[in-house]
Design a binder for these strands. Structure first.
Lengths: 351, 351
DNA sequence: CACCGTACTTCCAACGATGTAGTAGTCGAT
DNA sequence: ATCGACTACTACATCGTTGGAAGTACGGTG
């Protein structure tokens, strides 16, 4: 300890200390901890020594030796977006069931941070990465040189360059829009387009939206397709303000996520529109907020637990077998019709 | 590589490989990476070799040698509680600024998982822990044997056994309640009591609530103090249902957090109460949801960024100087008055 | 009684990085 | 030419753990 002592402060007990106290070799301690064959008496002595010293294995050393860390990274734009918060919760829980710990990386949806993620995040910390991209597209992913197992979330890129979990965004958006058309709405707006992103989720939802309008025999009016830079309440509120100022405002709005919808509804309310009477609103994600809002929000409900489970399964499989071909998992979704598009208000809430 | 090869699949480049390619010693590579003095020519050759091989340092090895991991743990009850989601976001960002990565541990507020957290989470993974306790009290913390630096969040325990960041919950609750009394409300209820927890945040808010009633010369009616097991919208909705069924329902409700308030407002709305006309509502936390809700929610707004920054500072200080006495940081808060307790509805939202 | 297998246990090397000490080589002053 | 002081680099030990091989003791077997 004299010449090279990297530790600062009290050094905590190592296997060597445990071994000394129990009067056995270091390897025997290791065997006890890893459940290998050890005599009953020895095992007990070792366990007592472990307890006495408050010994805990040094993860860094173990990982160094084993070549894996037991850590998975979850890279999302923002943790305080309710959708990602709910998803993160499920993924953390699912990872824990498999003995993995989750580290969080927030990209903010920016190019630089997202590139950093697909390049392996600077150091070999995680055994695998679950990544919800915003700025990176299929090409960026395909170009990647880092070999850390990677699972992509939330953007449907068929036959993509990596494992992928998503719902069928086009179909979901079509169903949502068709629902509005089915209510007899004729001027249906969309909030959340992102013209900059050629491949993102927003593009798929827009595609579904347009398809549904055509199927319903409605004209696609470009002025009713409103972009949103971020997907926060504020952006929804601003987009709705724009819509109400149109010469001929819409009688329905399909928002590409729930927070946009909640923000939009706030503005619509402030400007005297009754929901759903004057304007029906549908969102996307089925976050908890929408269920209790007044009016409660009709929304596309993806199977978030299914997404979490599938992402983890794909990732763990790939950690095992790094060279298998990429897989696509499509998780189910359903439309949850609530007050904002039909059920009358002033009725006890249920589900 | 023949006898003991823990790695599976392609082994990625190590310093040794870089050193061989650049024709220098391993230590020189290390020096280049860590910015020590290295000749210009050598440095360039090494950097080219690093780029060619796609070398990234092995964190486990570095951590083993350095005695620290660069990882901090954040232990919260549930990541999808908006308050914790917003806090997690800020803490992850703050940690990143200091070069640390955050791992997430979800305790669910349960004894077992929380005990696990204060016992060091099974292995020395994190250099420090930021912990928002629900079940553990001061005694549990004081009994702790693990030496990992620990910062507690959210519960004001003066002269506690560990570093601590909180707002003045008693004062905040008193202000909120006094605000309702100041509006002329006379039957003020509270939602969110947790009689089981002798020391939690809920107890402090209840204390402030009672104090404010007394100061306002109002009787403390026990039937108007409603417990909530969890702090979800659902619990708020149920508590409000109970209140409306009282013989003499309240004309104001102070909810111990915003999600309780949002759930309660939903029920109140369903049962025909006008907010704030019939019942004024105040929440706690100032989550984004409350700002856009109809009606927008009056709430106690803690300085969350301040909490994140302070927690990180305390933790990093303690990692440096493990034996200094515990410190208490009290972060500022303010009451944000919005529609649910006064501002008229039907007015453009602002702030 | 020598021999063998079984059941534990010990010894040694290795994972990849970094701290310390030591070795060349360079330069300026003497 | 000699020395000292410096710079640039190398060699080696070490962090705590685990894999593999070698060692030991014991009971049974021929």
């Amino acid at each position: 300890m004299t010449s090279t002592s990297p530790q600062r402060g009290r050094r905590s007990a190592s296997m060597k200390d445990v071994a000394a106290r129990a009067g056995v070799s270091v390897k025997t301690v290791s065997n006890v901890i890893n459940g290998a064959a050890v005599g009953a008496g020895t095992r007990e002595r070792v366990q007592r020594a472990i307890a006495d010293l408050g010994y805990r294995p040094n993860i860094s050393a173990r990982n160094l030796r084993r070549g894996r860390t037991g850590i998975l990274a979850l890279a999302v734009p923002e943790l305080d977006q309710p959708y990602f918060a709910e998803l993160a919760r499920l993924i953390v829980d699912a990872a824990e069931e498999h003995g993995y710990t989750i580290i969080i990386d927030q990209t903010g949806g920016g190019d630089r941070r997202e590139q950093y993620v697909i390049d392996g995040m600077g150091a070999k910390l995680a055994d695998g990465v679950i990544f919800s991209p915003v700025a990176m597209d299929r090409l960026d992913i395909a170009r990647r040189v880092d070999t850390t197992p990677l699972v992509l979330l939330g953007e449907r890129v068929s036959a993509g360059p990596a494992d992928h979990v998503a719902i069928d965004n086009v179909a979901a958006a079509r169903t949502a829009t068709a629902h509005l058309a089915g209510l007899g709405r004729r001027r249906i707006a969309a909030i959340g387009a992102q013209p900059d992103h050629a491949q993102g989720t927003s593009r798929l939802r827009e595609t579904g939206f347009r398809a549904a309008l055509e199927e319903a025999g409605l004209p696609v009016e470009e002025s009713l397709i409103v972009p949103a830079r971020d997907y926060h309440r504020r952006d929804g509120a601003e987009a709705a303000a724009y819509l109400t100022e149109l010469e001929d405002p819409p009688d329905a709005v399909f928002c590409f996520n729930d927070t946009l919808a909640l923000g939009a509804m706030r503005t619509l309310h402030d400007r005297g529109y009754r929901i759903p009477h004057d304007v029906a609103v549908v969102g996307f994600d089925d976050i908890d907020d929408g269920r209790y809002n007044v009016p409660s929000l009709t929304t596309v409900s993806p199977d978030k637990a299914g997404i979490a489970r599938s992402a983890l399964r794909l990732l763990l499989d790939r950690i095992e077998a790094i060279d298998s071909p990429p897989r696509e998992v499509t998780v189910r979704h359903e439309l949850r019709v609530r007050e904002s598009s039909g059920m009358t208000t002033r009725r006890p809430y249920s589900g």
